[in-house]
Design a protein around this nucleic acid. Structure first.
Lengths: 115, 115
DNA sequence: CTGTATCCCCCTTGATACTG
DNA sequence: CAGTATCAAGGGGGATACAG
């Protein structure tokens, strides 16, 4: 299969894997999606807690991109102090198979436990 | 699920997604694995053709890491001119569900075709 | 053909301070 | 609490040359 490789005008590869990586590639996005998908709606600071090592800037940046791509939903409550919640969108839920496959692989390959 | 977040001594997240990203994250590895998995064994230069935009350095570097992680197998023929073939390993095949999930998602979200 | 080594630029990321 | 702005630093990645 896949004998025909799709290439655009600039010579860039256009395979579906590539497309997916462009949307959710990088160090953080899939982990963020994992949490909002399986742990449910999270506040901004809760996400910080869940993602040790992430910086302020990275988190807000990645969240903004995920929101712009329609993968997460941002809900702001105009209270004092402010409260903002992030949840997975319908579209974001379509990534569940990807998340589950990666979770399963990481688990089976010994990613967790006393290593 | 997953209320217990695994963290190591250095405060780094230790979830299975994270583990997987460490092994096959980045711009190229999953695409390389896609090709050797579904298009079969490939020579070095064939891979270059299949991955428009990749540089010499990146390809050999990524291949080396994939080989060291046991995900691809490198076979060298001592001929003249040299010939080296890369194929997916048994362990590499365990990533098939991940590749398929990402391929499906990329396809459904309109990653291919006239966009 | 299949790499490795070197140099170097730039882009991502981090740290910090500031805002609503 | 939930961000944004700014600046600086580091390293990932590119171009090129060289090697087996």
């Amino acid at each position: 299969m896949t004998e025909e490789i799709q290439v655009d005008d600039h010579g860039k590869l256009k395979c579906s894997i590539d497309y997916t990586l462009n949307k959710v590639g990088g160090k953080w996005k899939l982990v963020i999606l994992w949490h909002v998908t399986f742990d449910g709606t999270q506040r901004y600071n809760e996400l910080r807690r869940l993602l040790p090592g992430i910086t302020h800037k990275m988190l807000s940046q990645q969240l903004k991109e995920l929101e712009q791509d329609g993968l997460v939903v941002r809900t702001q409550y105009n209270e004092m102090p402010p409260r903002v919640e992030y949840s997975v969108s319908e579209k974001g839920l379509t990534l569940k198979p990807v998340l589950e496959a990666m979770h399963l692989w990481g688990t089976e390959q010994g990613g967790l436990a006393g290593e």
